[in-house]
Design a protein around this nucleic acid. Sequence first.
DNA 1: TAAATAAAATTGGTCTGACAATATTATACC
DNA 2: GGTATAATATTGTCAGACCAATTTTATTTA
Lengths: 228, 228
Amino acid sequence: MAIQKTSLVDIAIDRIKSYIYEHNLKPNDKFFSEKELINKLQVSRTVIREALISLQAVGILQVKSGGGVYVAEPKLDPIHTILKHRYSTYGVKIKELMQTREIIELGALRLIIENQIDVDIDHLKALNDSYYETIMKNEDTKKYDRLFHESLIKATQNTTYCTFAEMVNEYFSLVKINEKEDGLLLAYKQHDEMIEAIRERSLQRAQQVMKKHFEPIFYLIHQMEDNK
Amino acid sequence: MAIQKTSLVDIAIDRIKSYIYEHNLKPNDKFFSEKELINKLQVSRTVIREALISLQAVGILQVKSGGGVYVAEPKLDPIHTILKHRYSTYGVKIKELMQTREIIELGALRLIIENQIDVDIDHLKALNDSYYETIMKNEDTKKYDRLFHESLIKATQNTTYCTFAEMVNEYFSLVKINEKEDGLLLAYKQHDEMIEAIRERSLQRAQQVMKKHFEPIFYLIHQMEDNK
DNA sequence: TAAATAAAATTGGTCTGACAATATTATACC
DNA sequence: GGTATAATATTGTCAGACCAATTTTATTTA
């Protein structure tokens, strides 16, 4: 006689996951319907439904109302949910997060230059030009700044690195930070200098500029910490 | 009259999450029971249960059989599940992952040295000594190697950085890589040299050794790519 | 009175059956 | 063949029941 230490739902979840991986199912593949799973696993519809709901929550399955069950496209949304919970519980030291971001960006420069990756310099320049325009027009500058840094990460052509960098940025998006309005032009120039350094394949120069680029933020954080 | 575009379960999930965050509930706080939620949200037990299951899957709630519902301690387990799905779907270029790991470790050295963090040198030495012993005794070396690198990350005293590094390592644990048995002694010496470099606060030297430390792995990867 | 034990109440786990809402498929029509 | 319609399949929600695990309360005992 078998000892049922875990719940039926957990068992169902395990068996469904195993099936997906052993049969190498890919995103958007149609999966079994609830009824089929009931027959296959010999449990009630309740158990099947709760297993499906659970697998949907972590982005493994996608249940379409009236349309059936499908293997889901891996998204970072559930991770965002999880990080949000973590943030809400532990909080996050803004300084720690900025240090992490700095390391990620310095690392991107290293990956690009040491591996001699071909970078679309014009694209970076175009983004930075748009950034310049928003500064001049006194519009919202955040968008193009973010795009510039994102493009820098993507330029590594390392999708794994991009994924994790994206997670860090997701985490960052949960934090509110008052940004100073001065220094925008300086940031623009630093972007430009980074592009130049990348073109020259000078890691040291690129990283030096990047560190300068982060300095005002750390100065701000330092001030905040002193004030409290 | 309201249009019900999302499912009741999704609405329940949102309302429960909102309640947790707005009331600033912390891990291990007792949450409402199913019955209470039924009265509160005016939906069937099915809907409540599916919402709870979903929130449990992403590590926000913990449902204890017979004991009630609690706010969960943030864990990385759900993220591990998600990354595993991602890995199984897209695969992961081992080279990309190792590059990411290298960046993380180089970054750790930078954080430690530039911020002049006090590092427990003796602890690192002790771990490396244990590593040495397992080499000599021809036992499993992986454990102490992993502990050494983990300690290096933790030495940054940047918990945010540690969290993300842990995710990368979780991802790494999914990948099987044949490691060569030679070069273990070299690795031991490199660990030791890193410790020395940290003690001297020499970022350049520490990073140089770390890069040397990763070289054989990249060489291996390079060979594998050539062979296929 | 305090601790150990037993009973009761609470709470989550699973099952069944039913009907509604939605998506897919088959059919009839032009 | 294409389109509108009907039939079918599938998921969403509800209600009620019973079991299992846990907690609370009551009772007994030292």
